[in-house]
């Protein structure tokens, strides 16, 4: 059962990690890593596998977060219903914009997705009657069937489980006719077309799917932090997400998880430096991409294969 080896290994890490987590601060970092990893696993389907860039994915995270915040806190919806509604709404929005946007190529696609993300960000900032504007708004805790997710520990296990589920789904897709179609779109779009693949349709599908992943995590983040601000959908956050994909390794699901782990931890380590933090962060970004263009995990895997 080779296909479950990676998943089992990750499950083991998630199960054993708490032994090494001394306090809630570390749990918090682990949870953030997990949540980012879920988004990035989805985004990697779009960028790494299908070869389509999105510089606006944080916009979808923001929409999910605010759907949960507004519906559950202002309208008293059950959190799960709010989250599912958010995912559905984001799915519809992504579907509507995807067809015209994904006809674009390369930098034009980058421009359009970037614009989309920024527009969403500005709506969240400006519609303050709903969103609380730049000050953000508080969100009530996630509860289901009378149970409330309150402690870091509880969130840790939930996030871990969702991450494993997300990876399972993503890996299933990659290794299916749909996944091959997506990879063919990346490998040779004309070859895909003449093989009968409606390439636009597949680009739209994976764009919508990755947006829905992002929205789900947005909802989770909103409830976990108990607070949302428009910063979740900022351009910088979109960039962070893409960076996680690239640094971890494009077209590598576990690479995406590694990328999320590194880029979530790094700012925490650097947190006290301010300007120096940006310098270090920028340098690391440039150096990794220049010297490990295929990303960390694929490079490590190739080294190991050569050595062994």
């Amino acid at each position: 059962m080779g296909r479950f080896r990676g998943l089992a290994a990750l499950a083991l890490i998630i199960a054993l990690l708490p032994l090494a987590l001394p306090n809630n601060y570390y749990y918090d970092v682990a949870i953030r890593i997990g949540m980012n990893a879920i988004i990035v696993v989805g985004l990697n389907l779009l960028i790494g596998y299908a070869g389509q860039i999105s510089l606006g994915h944080a916009g979808f995270v923001g929409l999910g977060a605010y759907a949960s915040a507004v519906l559950s806190s202002r309208f008293g919806w059950p959190p799960l219903a709010a989250m599912l509604f958010g995912m559905a709404a984001v799915g519809v929005i992504a579907f509507v914009v995807a067809r015209p946007i994904l006809r674009l190529r390369g930098h034009y696609l980058a421009m359009a997705t970037l614009g989309l993300g920024i527009i969403i960000y500005m709506v969240l900032v400006n519609e303050s009657a709903w969103t609380g504007g730049n000050d953000g708004m508080s969100v009530r805790p996630f509860s289901l069937l009378g149970l409330t997710l309150a402690s870091e520990r509880a969130w840790y296990w939930v996030t871990g489980a969702v991450l494993l589920g997300a990876i399972l789904l993503a890996n299933n897709i990659v290794d299916s006719p749909v996944g091959r179609a997506l990879r063919a779109v990346h490998g040779s779009e004309v070859a895909a077309q003449v093989a009968g693949i409606d390439t636009t349709r597949y680009k739209v599908r994976v764009f919508v799917l990755s947006a829905v992943f992002a929205s789900a995590v947005g909802s989770m983040m909103a409830h976990y932090l108990g607070f949302v601000s428009p910063q979740v959908s900022s351009f910088f956050h979109s960039i962070e997400l893409v960076t996680m994909v690239v640094v971890g390794g494009m077209a590598s699901t576990y690479g995406a998880v590694l990328g999320a782990a590194i880029l979530t931890t790094l700012p925490q380590l650097l947190a006290t430096f301010e300007g120096y933090e940006m310098i270090t962060f920028g340098l690391i970004l440039m150096l990794t991409v220049i010297f490990l263009p295929r990303g960390l995990l694929p490079t490590i895997a190739a080294r190991l294969r050569k050595a062994g």
Partner: peptide
């Protein structure tokens, strides 16, 4: 296998 695409199941849910 890409060439056989049209003869295979293309459902998103089924693939997931």
């Amino acid at each position: 296998m890409v060439g056989a695409h049209l003869r295979l199941d293309q459902g998103m849910l089924g693939s997931m």
